[in-house]
Design a binder for these strands. Structure first.
Lengths: 202, 202
DNA sequence: TCTATTGGGGAACGATCGTTTCCAAATTAA
DNA sequence: TTAATTTGGAAACGATCGTTCCCCAATAGA
């Protein structure tokens, strides 16, 4: 008897990890976009037969939404880890922007951001996708806003700065970086954007 | 005999204006993206039969690239018109950013930018599309750079500002606005981004 | 051991995709 | 007039799409 887990449900157990499969799907969806990513490509990348895919997920859209959620979970965890090392509010804002700059060049830049891709390709016609994009953007913006206030409290950011409008701009900068990263500017360029944008906190 | 035009080519004359048809295609491609826009949707929007479409354009990709070029031509003309009314370099930068903010909210915001859409959906796998995106971005950035230098020459922008890196950031802001505009923030928000970003010129 | 249930995988399905073909109509050149 | 050429438009084509079906394997519970 297995003490640590709940009793196994009836039927044949799944032979693959959902999250591992989603990590493969994220790559396909990010590079190709939702519509250009075919089930054939997805099943090859995920190492599954079509039948198995459709037993784990209702349809292609469900695979995508699950990939989106997994993507957000992983990226948020990495970001929080990065922010935890920040010394003060200003440093944390800088780390956050650099986190996006890091993702916006080279191979990961070309692969692209699943949130941006969803906003561009899906949000207009898919209310559920739009809501996920909105939640993601709102969360990021609120995070920047909070870090600015933290910086004002610890003296690392000028008190005259308006946290709300400044967070708007910095969110725009991060999303813009992701767009520009699709055609692959070099690393230095992405980081010079961060350095210059940080002037908004002076 | 028609004095004003070159002699008409042999064969039945085309009954529609290519540019008018492209203006309709631009709407479809902007809203739906390249892959989700079907020939069926395009021909309905453009008011043409499939056969006629394929006599005017080699294939779907050619329709898209022609739409992209037409989009750039129209938008560039509108932007130059707007900039011509600017009083000095700073005012022109502000007008440029407001031009993007105006496009990034409401119905046109939801419709989206064809350049951003191409960058996200096509640039990675289509070298010709990527080149067009790059040229567009480079042109916009060079324009901002030039306006900053103009402002420094006429005294409306601080001489300590680095035109190159500042143009990088402001380009990122414009592209970011276009992404955020897909899920439709309100007008005031888009313009508050512009106002705050203008602080980078102080 | 028997039944119920679920997953794996490949074959098959109908729908839709982008594209081509075909024929009538409209034009120029001879 | 006639031939050559091009467009308009509808119908048809093969390919691929997302999805379902079916059969076998693997597990739980009785």
């Amino acid at each position: 008897m297995d003490i640590n887990t709940a009793t196994r449900p009836p039927g044949r157990p799944r032979e693959f990890e959902i999250e591992e499969a989603l990590d493969k799907a994220i790559v396909v969806f990010s590079e190709r976009g939702y519509h250009a990513a075919s089930i054939s490509e997805l099943k090859d990348a995920m190492g599954l037969a079509a039948g198995s895919l459709y037993k784990a997920f209702k349809d292609k859209r469900a695979i995508f939404l699950a990939s989106f959620d997994r993507y957000k979970q992983v990226r948020n965890a990495l970001l929080e880890q990065e922010l935890a090392e920040g010394e003060n509010g200003r440093d944390k804002v800088s780390r956050m922007l650099r986190f996006y700059a890091e993702a916006s060049h080279g191979a990961s830049g070309r692969r692209g951001c699943l949130v941006v891709g969803t906003a561009i390709e899906l949000a207009v016609y898919d209310a559920e996708a739009a809501e996920r994009v909105d939640r993601s953007m709102a969360r990021t913006e609120a995070m920047i806003d909070g870090l600015i206030r933290e910086g004002q409290a610890d003296g690392s950011i000028a008190p005259a700065i308006d946290p709300v409008t400044t967070a708007h701009v910095l969110l725009s900068v991060t999303q813009g970086l992701r767009v520009l990263g699709k055609t692959g500017p070099n690393r230095d360029r992405a980081f010079s954007v961060v350095d210059t944008a940080m002037k908004l906190l002076d």
